[in-house]
């Protein structure tokens, strides 16, 4: 079932926002292939009629009253940001160059 290709690892790194050098991509391709081989044992289980469990204990959704509650102090939060400006997080540009004005 496994046999993960290097091209797939390049794609995964992109999806996971990991900027990895070539040798690391090759290294991970080998390791992920070995790990997937080992975990593929789950496919041996005949479980067509078995329901999936996403959570260990049965839970119902919980709500709270829709009232204002104190939140974190803005200055304290922004003091931990890599960059802040005018009371906001400052982030790198999110649009490509030469967007129409």
């Amino acid at each position: 079932m496994s046999a993960i290709t290097r091209a797939e690892v390049v794609h995964l790194a992109r999806l996971a926002r990991l900027d990895l050098p070539d040798d690391a991509l090759t290294h991970y391709a080998e390791q992920l292939d070995a790990i997937l081989d080992a975990v593929a044992m789950v496919s041996e289980v005949a479980a067509d009629d078995v329901p999936a469990t996403s959570h260990p204990v049965p839970l119902t959704n919980v709500f709270r009253d829709d009232t204002n509650q104190p939140c974190l102090a803005r200055a304290e939060v922004l003091a931990q940001a890599p960059a802040a400006e005018d009371g906001r997080f400052r982030v790198p540009r999110i649009l490509d160059d030469e967007e129409p004005a």
């Binding site: 789950v42 999936a52 469990t53």
Partner: peptide
């Protein structure tokens, strides 16, 4: 499949 194993 892993979630089904979890049930088992």
């Amino acid at each position: 499949q892993a979630q089904k194993v979890r049930t088992l």
